[in-house]
Structures are given as structure tokens and as C-alpha cells.
Design a protein around this nucleic acid. Structure first.
Length: 564
RNA sequence: CGGGGUGUAGCGCAGUUGGUAGCGCGCGACGUUUGGGACGUUGAGGUCGUAGGUUCGAAUCCUAUCACCCCGACCA
């Protein structure tokens, strides 16, 4: 492609809307432009990267026998009503009507469509298993968009779906898809880890997230320093410490004026936050839930939902809190009954803690779980902190930031049962098809690649997703240089090397800086100076290493280096 | 939705006693340049987010509204 006729330009300064480095580079390099919040237009250069990522995906999925298919992006509400997700999905689903007042939605994911197709197509176990995928637009009316391509409303997902006769089949294909996904990420040059995750809306077993390490990540990962344990902090668990409640003096009340927060309390009493118990109140569909965690811990709402067996959690009102006899700011479960108390492991077996006295201005010292109070449930409901023990090996956990670039689930029969997608087994019995679902976000992946592959000058593309293999820079506009550059452009193209040809009438500095910004793996410079010796200069973007090569050996040299 | 912030030329920004808008980069033309963001001459480009209001007069003061960004609850 000739830059003189390309669409899109580079920017010296990033628009102020972009805060993340990778987002700034996307805009500065002219890969994409924002048209509205949550909606980005890919420009030709960005589209080429996108196509290369797609090509990797097609190749890896073909290698595991997946068949490409395509569903509509607009679905009938009635289909989603059958699985219950029309009601369940919430505001992230964009709903609308057509001219016939038919209730429609813009699909945020496609399990229903696949299950419906399976219902129509699959009659017999002989037709199973199947593995389908598409690379297609999704729309999620996200509460908040973020970080350029990181979190869009309209985005592209590689979504794959497996159909099996039984769980053993699903287990096998799940592993195959996981391997293919990992290969895709590796080929994109992304550093990532697979973590245990929360299934969220999807349901199903063994949800696993693929997280790219990223300082701008939205998720926190607990990663073990010594074993292979890695989990999203949403679900990460920690090892337990031994009980230590002997010889704690009897509980006693102590005046603590104006200490309604843990920080104030710890400061006033000269104790660490870990020596206090924190009361947090939630309202759920089962009523008020009184949660107790150690003062230095945060409640993890995902774990809490699971432990309490509720799906709705919202902050409780002051009226609800006082109705059970607790005093906001000085609340504790001590002496309360008729309320569901869920305690975190961190307040059990850790000796005497300072807890509220349910009396304004007073706390209780030396409060011991089991002796002084009881919870309805004791469970792991607090966030993991750096330094916590690994649940597998006991070593120390560290916390890393990550961006979710992929997610895989064993869905089972949730959707197929709801839609009646069954097959006849060898005994002639109808059985629900067992599904799995697997997704990768493409725009996000693209931005993650840039985040992990750039320097202060610009993008440094990994070779196999670079928009072009080589950036041909012509310096000066003389016929000599122009002819030589044009000829090289033809030769390289003919040899199958994709070339971005900077034939613009710009100064050398502008061209070099743009070449650095755009980040093709190789830069080939053609100028008067070299041509006098019949040479051109080949520079590696990543290493900065420069080779001077003869005009007649350019193509063979580049082919050789590209291989290596 | 809650909290914070920003809307002035394509991009980055300046513009408070209220007097009808400016700088840098970029862009067009001409000329000189061409190995790391060149130089000269000249030119184009702005309903100051939008709508009301106050005022003789509003980018500036008031009200409403919209858009966008950041932080939290959802997710690839």
C-alpha cells in the first residue's frame, strides 16, 4: 500500500480522550477512530491487523476441526425468552422493535441461536459431536465503556460452540479449544495466563478466563509464586491458618467515640485493622444479610452471592440495619439473633477481635467467634490479598492486573434443555445436547498486543500480526530514488512481502518517526546516499539493528530474515 | 446510575473587571529543502457542544440539556 493514497493519518499528539498508552498509539498511528462512546471505526491499517488476527484464528480453529458458521446479529426476543435470559440479561442487552412491533434484540452472545440451530439440525448421536465458530459483531449495552478498544459496546468476538452427546465429549473438546486459544494468544505475542473464573450470566462449569497481563487491566489476578495456581480475584481462595483462640480474655466493652470506620477505630485503639471485625450489610432477595469480615479485608460480592445463595445484592438501608438491632458504624453480630450472619474465615480462629457493641460510641474487645457469637454460615467471602497463602501449595500469592481476552465454559445442557435441542442416543432415548462455549474479544486483543509491544517511539508489532511485513521509506523525490523505491516495491510485492510504501513528499524525519510509530517489523530505507553505492538500509524495528544490503539482494535478504 | 472532570479550528491548548476569538502543530498554494518530526512567503479553516435566560453587549455570568473522558457496579 502506498501511504500517499492511504486513508487515515498519523497524529503527533494523542487526542486527550485517550489515556491509556495503547489507546493513544492506536489513535496516533491511525489504526482506528472513535465514532461514538463504545463504537470504534477501524481504518485500513487497523483493519489489516484485525484481518491477520482473524487469519490466525481461522487457522487454529480449522486445525481442531471447527466449522465456520454465521448467525444473525438481531435475534427475536422470543428465542431468548425460552431460556429465561431475556429477563435475566438486564440492561446490557440492547432491545428494540421492528416495524411490526416484533420484540428484537441485538445479540450480546449466541448460545440461544446455536442451541436453536442444533435443535433443528441434530436428531441423532451420529451427528455429534460438532464444533462451530464465527467471528462476528456483538453488541452489549455496557454500563460504561473504557479505554479505547478495551471495552466497547459494539465489538467483534470469536465465539465458538461445541455440541456433544455427553460430558466426556465436552471435556475433550473443551481441552482442544483451550489449546487452540492458547496457541492463538501465543501467536499474537500476548503474555497471558489462564485463571479460574466466575461463570456470571452464562452458567456452566469450569469457567476459565484467559487474562493478558496488563497494567491497565480491569481484573485482579491472584497468582501463586511457586505452583500453577492462578485465579481471578473474584473467585480466588486462600489457604487457612490454624486456630488460635486459647487464652483470649473475656469480652469487654470499651468507649470509642467517633469511630465509625475501621481506620478510625484502629487508629483510636492503636491496633491494626486486622485485629478488628468489620460489619457490612446487604439487602438480597432473601432479606438482610449481615456480613462480617476482618477489618483489613474487603467483601467479595461474587463469593458472597454464592455463599448466601442469592443473586441480588445491594447495600442495605439504615432502616433495615436498625431493624435487626444493629447500630450503623458500631455494628457487630454479637448479641443479635433473627438475622442471617455470614462470616468470613478471616474472623474465625484468629483470637480476640474488636467488634461493634451495637451501641453508639462503643465497641467490644476480645470478641471470639464461637465463644461470643455465631454466624449462620462461615465461608470464604473476602477478597484475596497479596501475601495470602495459596490454596494449593500454601506459598505466597501475588496480585497482578489483567485484561480478560478470552473466556471458555462448559455450558452443559442449560440452553439445549430449555430449547428442546435433543438427539436420540443408540438406545433410541432422547438426550439433551451438551454444549460448550468459547470466546475471544478481537478489538481488545488488538489493543492488548499494542500494550505489550510498544516503546517510547511507537508500536513494535509482532511479525505475525503486523499490518505489513515491511515499511519502505523513500527519502527524497529524485527520479533515481523514486525509481529504485518503486522497483523495490514491485519486487517485494511480487515476492509475497507485504509492503507499506512511504512515497509521500515528506522530510526524512517525518518518515522515520512515522515508521517508528507504525511499527512494522522491518524498515527499508532508500535514499540518494545509499544508492550511490547501490545499497539500501534494512532496520529491525524491535532491535534497532541496521543492515546495509546491496540493491540486488534486497528481496532474498528480506525473505531470509522474515523466515528467521 | 452514583462520584469526579472536559467541551473554543483536524490535534494539543490559551482566552475572569463581560466589549464579538488567539497560539503551536497540522492543512492549501508558491519557492527553497530532503538520512531523524525543515525553512520562507501566503492562504483557508471556528454556530466558542446545544437551547434558553441576564445584559446595550456573553466563549466569559445563570439555568437546563447533550456529548465525551476517568473512578465504582457488568463483561470479550
Amino acid at each position: 500500500m502506498r501511504m500517499s493514497s492511504g486513508f487515515g493519518r498519523t497524529l503527533r499528539e494523542a487526542p486527550s480522550e485517550a489515556e491509556l498508552t495503547a489507546h493513544q498509539l492506536i489513535l496516533r498511528a491511525g489504526l482506528a477512530r472513535q465514532l461514538l462512546a463504545g463504537g470504534m471505526a477501524l481504518l485500513p491499517l487497523g483493519m489489516r491487523v484485525f484481518r491477520r488476527i482473524e487469519a490466525l484464528m481461522h487457522a487454529e480453529l480449522a486445525a481442531i476441526g471447527a466449522g465456520e458458521f454465521r448467525t444473525p446479529v438481531v435475534h427475536a426476543a422470543s428465542l431468548w425468552q425460552q431460556t429465561g435470559r431475556y429477563a435475566q440479561y438486564g440492561e446490557a442487552m440492547l432491545r428494540f422493535e421492528n416495524r411490526n412491533q416484533q420484540a428484537l434484540l441485538f445479540a450480546p452472545t449466541h448460545e440461544e441461536a446455536v442451541a436453536e440451530l442444533a435443535r433443528r439440525e441434530v436428531d441423532s448421536y451420529r451427528q455429534l459431536p460438532s464444533l462451530l465458530y464465527q467471528i462476528h459483531t456483538k453488541y452489549r449495552d455496557e454500563l460504561r465503556v473504557r479505554g479505547g478498544l478495551l471495552r466497547l459496546r459494539e465489538f467483534t468476538m470469536l465465539d465458538a460452540y461445541s455440541l456433544d452427546a455427553d460430558w466426556a465429549g465436552l471435556d475433550a473438546v473443551y481441552d482442544r479449544v483451550a489449546l487452540a486459544f492458547e496457541t492463538i494468544f501465543e501467536r499474537c505475542g500476548v503474555r497471558f495466563t489462564a485463571v479460574e473464573a466466575d461463570g456470571g450470566e452464562m452458567g456452566g462449569r469450569e469457567p476459565r478466563e484467559y487474562m493478558a497481563f496488563s497494567s491497565s487491566g480491569e481484573d485482579t489476578l491472584a497468582v501463586c509464586q511457586s505452583c500453577n495456581y492462578a485465579a481471578n480475584s473474584e473467585v480466588a481462595v486462600r489457604g487457612q491458618s490454624a486456630a488460635n483462640d486459647d487464652l483470649v480474655p473475656a469480652m469487654s466493652e470499651i468507649a470509642t467515640p467517633a469511630c465509625t470506620t475501621i481506620a478510625e477505630l484502629a487508629a483510636f485503639l492503636q491496633v491494626s485493622e486486622a485485629q478488628t471485625a468489620k460489619a457490612v450489610f446487604f439487602n438480597s432477595e432473601k432479606g438482610l444479610i449481615f456480613v462480617v469480615v476482618r477489618g483489613d479485608r474487603e467483601v467479595n460480592e461474587i463469593k458472597l452471592r454464592a455463599a448466601a445463595g442469592v443473586s441480588v445484592l445491594e447495600p442495605a438501608t439504615l432502616e433495615q440495619i436498625s431493624a435487626v438491632g444493629a447500630v450503623a458504624g458500631y455494628a457487630s453480630p454479637v448479641g443479635l439473633s433473627n438475622v442471617t450472619v455470614i462470616a468470613d474465615h478471616s474472623v474465625v480462629g484468629v483470637g480476640g477481635l474488636v467488634a461493634g457493641a451495637n451501641r453508639s460510641g462503643y465497641h467490644l474487645q476480645n470478641v471470639v467467634y464461637g465463644r461470643d457469637w455465631q454466624a449462620t454460615i462461615v465461608a470464604d467471602i473476602a477478597n484475596v490479598e497479596a501475601g495470602d497463602a495459596c490454596p494449593q501449595c500454601g506459598a505466597s500469592l501475588s496480585l497482578e492486573r489483567g485484561i480478560e481476552i478470552g473466556h471458555i465454559f462448559k455450558l452443559g445442557t442449560r440452553y439445549t434443555e430449555a430449547l428442546g435441542a435433543t438427539y436420540l442416543d443408540p438406545q433410541g432415548q432422547a438426550q439433551p445436547i451438551v454444549m460448550g462455549s468459547y470466546g475471544i474479544g478481537l478489538e481488545r486483543l488488538l489493543q492488548v498486543i499494542i500494550e505489550q509491544h510498544h516503546d517510547e517511539k511507537g508500536i513494535v508489532w509482532p511479525a505475525c500480526v503486523a499490518p505489513f511485513d515491511l515499511h519502505l521509506v523513500q527519502l527524497g523525490a529524485s527520479a533515481t530514488v523514486s525509481d529504485a523505491a518503486n522497483q523495490l516495491y514491485q519486487q517485494l510485492n511480487a515476492a509475497g512481502v507485504s509492503v507499506l510504501y512511504d512515497d509521500r513528499n515528506e522530510s526524512a524525519g517525518v518518515k522515520f518517526n512515522d515508521a517508528d510509530l507504525l511499527g512494522m517489523p522491518w524498515r527499508l530505507t532508500v535514499g540518494e546516499r545509499g544508492l550511490k553505492q547501490q545499497v539500501v538500509e534494512l532496520r529491525n524495528r524491535a532491535t534497532g539493528v541496521v543492515d546495509t544490503i546491496g540493491l540486488d539482494e534486497v528481496v532474498t535478504m528480506i525473505m531470509m530474515k522474515d523466515e528467521g
